[in-house]
Design a protein around this nucleic acid. Structure first.
Lengths: 222, 222
DNA sequence: CAATGTTCGCGAACAATGTTCGTCCCAGAG
DNA sequence: CTCTGGGACGAACATTGTTCGCGAACATTG
């Protein structure tokens, strides 16, 4: 039995580390994933990871790009309309990313230029060009889509939490919002107050559809 | 000199702690702000903060709502059009929040129901009602605006960083993106590759305007 | 082949952070 | 006056990202 145990386990690699990281993120969320946990999953020590990644952020960016590399992108012909295909692409990307709670937040404040991210950009650009969106608009739209996808994935990956004076842990979110509006001072928040009994019962898919349609409709008018 | 030093400094309060927190966030960014730093700024120890806030997240939510409470919301008559006023409200909120780097990310995954957040919701709702946006649409738009504002503020609060194989620290961002596209394999990323020499020179205000207009145009078509 | 250089692997240690526990002090109520 | 509740806060704890130093393995050179 050698001291190094090298013959007894697979050698480390970037891919293996990324895979272990994604598995842990999927199970526990990004925030709770430590280098120690990743290393333990690979039967090694956290210092070993530094031979492959500069730091924790570096590892998370790589994990993010791996997800971008594998999310489903429907063909251009879907639904016979570029908008349908674009909506499905955005939706699919959000869903894929949302499988890794909190990972989308890693992207905020960054422009991702790894192969996976560019794969998505290329695809979205193709669809927009197919729809006659001018390049100047399409490029700006890529930025906006990137932001939206990352942030939406965060919000879809775990139940939303209500935060504030009216937040009650015993109710579901819609009830909490409704109650907060009902309790809001009518003279300060008259419209929210008036809305409290009439909040639409939109579920998450409907909200997502609305948001995506808003973006797609919006870029065609920009 | 008493052991407690109480006579020598102002008593703690939620407001004082929030203020100290915001000052530090403004200077160092959310991520770098520790409870120890906040406590030190108030000449106390980190454990003292727990009498006012459940934990660090709780403090950050309160700081976030304080910013929402103070961001400028232009009057409905601005520009003679509800859309102009809505755009300015979104823009102003993003700018105010962007003064506190990274604070927007605290909002992701949450529905903020504090007084500051509801103040903004009330205002945006008022503008949309003024513009004849149906309530069912307006409520969904509030969700989308909240997400967009929070994520945009994060991205506007510090220079964007390029991440990925082509990232070079010596260049500004636009150059990095352009170079990454130029170096991208033409057979895999033909459209990005073709765009590399033609990326529009849009600065940040133009990008922001595009994004906001996209949202506003989009909700009117939803 | 032996010596040397390089890289991977990783334990030990360090600095830092959020949080809890226990104690003290003060103000207010009974 | 006593008791109680709550604020203040030091000490300590558990944990985390990271660095340092060293051994082992492998590649290269003479």
């Amino acid at each position: 039995m050698t001291r190094r145990r090298r013959p007894a386990k697979a050698p480390l690699s970037r891919a293996a580390i990324i895979e272990a990281t994604l598995t842990l993120i999927s199970a526990q969320g990004t925030r709770a994933v430590t280098l120690r946990a990743v290393a333990a999953a690979l039967e090694t020590g956290p210092a070993s990871l530094y031979a492959y990644f500069a730091n924790r952020d570096d590892l998370l960016y790589a994990a993010l790009d791996a997800v971008y590399e594998r999310c489903p992108l429907p063909p251009a012909g879907l639904g016979g309309d570029w908008r349908v295909a674009l909506a499905a692409s955005l939706s699919g990307t959000i869903d894929a990313l949302a499988s890794y709670p909190g990972l989308g937040s890693v992207a905020l404040g960054t422009v991702q230029l790894g192969p996976g991210a560019m794969r998505i950009s290329e695809h979205l650009l193709m669809l927009m060009q197919l729809g006659g969106v001018p390049d100047e608009t399409a490029v700006l739209a890529l930025d906006l889509f990137a932001l939206f996808v990352a942030a939406s994935a965060v919000e879809h990956s775990a139940p939303m939490r209500a935060v504030g004076a009216g937040a009650r842990r015993r109710q579901d979110l819609a009830q909490q919002v409704s109650q907060a509006y009902a309790e809001a001072a009518p003279e300060r928040y008259p419209r929210l107050h008036a809305l409290s009994g009439k909040l639409p019962d939109a579920d998450e898919p409907a909200r997502s559809r609305f948001a995506i349609n808003t973006l797609i409709n919006g870029i065609t008018l920009a």
